[in-house]
């Protein structure tokens, strides 16, 4: 898994600098040093967080496409809803603050869920504590997206791949 992070960093470096840089030894050395440095930072971060970015396994990557599709559909629907709200002649909002349970086991999964909610227009995560999210929503329809728990299940499904 840690080597997976290393491989990912190396791949990003290669993508940013282009494969032809592999032939110049100086640039290649710079690449190795920078990837090693960022990897070292990641290891320190993992220690500080008490471990648990269990996300670099083959099974998780296999489930990623389905998650991305579900994510895109949810975000698109929420975008259309908020667009309708913005363009309606009289702006009518019913803002609310709700506590939502985050049933993910790892903190990584919970943060992913919180980011999912924040990224969906109409809902924003204010706080995360004791396996509960504090969610601020624009109106009842935006709130329903979160309260019906479908996003929770999406994240659970991809998180379950790490077990």
């Amino acid at each position: 898994m840690r080597l997976g992070v290393f491989a990912l960093l190396a791949a990003v470096w290669l993508a940013l600098s282009g494969p032809y840089t592999l032939y110049g030894w100086l640039i290649f050395a710079f690449g190795v040093v920078s990837v090693a440095f960022v990897w070292r930072l990641y290891l320190a971060l993992e220690r500080a967080a008490g471990g648990g970015f269990e996300f670099f396994r083959a099974s998780a990557w296999l489930r990623l496409p389905r998650f991305l599709v579900a994510f895109a559909v949810k975000v698109a629907a929420a975008n259309l809803h908020v667009t309708k709200l913005i363009l309606s002649p009289r702006i009518e909002l019913h803002p609310r603050l709700r506590r939502v349970p985050a049933s993910q086991k790892t903190s990584f999964g919970q943060v992913l869920y919180a980011n999912f909610i924040t990224l969906t227009p109409g809902t924003i995560t204010l706080d995360l504590r004791d396996d509960e999210l504090l969610v601020y929503a624009l109106d009842a329809e935006s709130e329903a997206d979160v309260m019906d728990g479908s996003m929770d299940r999406d994240v659970l499904r991809i998180e379950g791949a790490s077990d």
């Binding site: 975008n79 667009t83 702006i91 803002p95 924040t118 990224l119 969906t120 227009p121 924003i124 601020y136």
Partner: peptide, 16 residues
């Protein structure tokens, strides 16, 4: 009309 509501508008440009 309010800061918290405006963050949702910004989120529309950032995603869609």
């Amino acid at each position: 009309s309010e800061f918290y509501q405006r963050t949702h508008a910004a989120s529309v440009t950032d995603t869609a």
